[in-house]
């Protein structure tokens, strides 16, 4: 028995459903409906994130520090803060970034870019050294290879940790390209490659599951709130 259709009367649901169908139409081939949805997506997402950036970052961290009286617009009852001249530095860097719009001044845009790269390099070096290098080594060998619980040796855990250690080391050996991978060294690298292929397979499987979950979600939206079948 086919369930009765109860079309939604909500404009938001209709817009979402029609845009969803427009995007799915690309499975047939590129067409004007898909192009329309694609261009709406570009325009809306660019403006949305710009607005979010303005109200969540630029307004409290820059505008209110340079023009404290502006706080009366957003929260009239809150006390007016003090003027913070330090905020002139990021304001100047931000304006220099906009200099890229004028070809003759575009070289000034390299200064904020350099600041952004310096910040990224500074934070990344410490963060990666700590969390992705030292902590990963610690997690691999730090707990020991003979874990026990209540005085009993957990041989299955030991075997798993030994395999993780062997897999990690051999995977790293595979990445070393400054030495020819021959003989025993080559066999270790080959084992590392196999471990990496299993890892890529697992990542691929997880990615497929994620996409399929999104697809199911879209069909649920179409069949549920829009058509009222579910």
């Amino acid at each position: 028995m086919i369930a009765a259709i109860h079309l939604s009367g909500d404009v938001q649901v209709w817009i979402g459903a029609l845009l969803t169908l427009m995007v799915f139409s690309f499975l047939w081939r590129d067409n004007p409906f898909y192009k329309f949805a694609e261009h709406v997506f570009v325009g809306v997402s660019a403006a949305y994130w710009m607005v979010m950036g303005f109200w969540t970052t630029l307004w409290p961290a820059l505008v209110l520090k340079l023009f404290p009286a502006a706080g009366r617009w957003s929260s009239p009852d809150a006390p007016v803060g003090a003027w913070d001249p330090v905020a002139l530095i990021p304001a100047a860097l931000g304006l220099l970034m906009l200099a890229r719009l004028w070809p003759r001044l575009s070289w000034l845009g390299k200064w904020p870019t350099a600041f952004a790269l310096g910040t990224t390099a500074g934070y990344s070096l410490v963060r990666y050294l700590r969390s992705d290098f030292l902590y990963q080594i610690e997690a691999t060998i730090g707990t020991g290879l003979a874990p026990t619980a209540a005085g009993r040796w957990l041989w299955q855990e030991s075997l798993a940790q030994l395999l993780v250690l062997a897999g990690t080391v051999s995977g790293l050996v595979y990445f070393v390209n400054t030495r020819e991978q021959r003989g025993a060294y080559g066999r270790v690298a080959r084992w590392g490659l196999l471990v990496l292929m299993i890892t890529f397979g697992a990542s691929f499987g997880s990615a497929v599951m994620g996409r399929v979950a999104l697809l199911v979600g879209r069909f649920q939206e179409l069949l549920g709130p829009w058509l009222g079948i579910l």
Binding site: A121, L163, L165, G167, G171, L172, L196, F200, A202
Partner: peptide, 28 residues
């Protein structure tokens, strides 16, 4: 997920970390 994937992910993370650190040092 618990054994070979963890090993592979750790090898990738350590490798990427070394790459990022080297790149940061080169930039600085």
């Amino acid at each position: 997920l618990r054994v070979p994937n963890t090993a592979g992910q750790r090898a990738l993370m350590i490798g990427i970390a070394l790459g990022v650190i080297a790149l940061a040092v080169r930039m600085i």
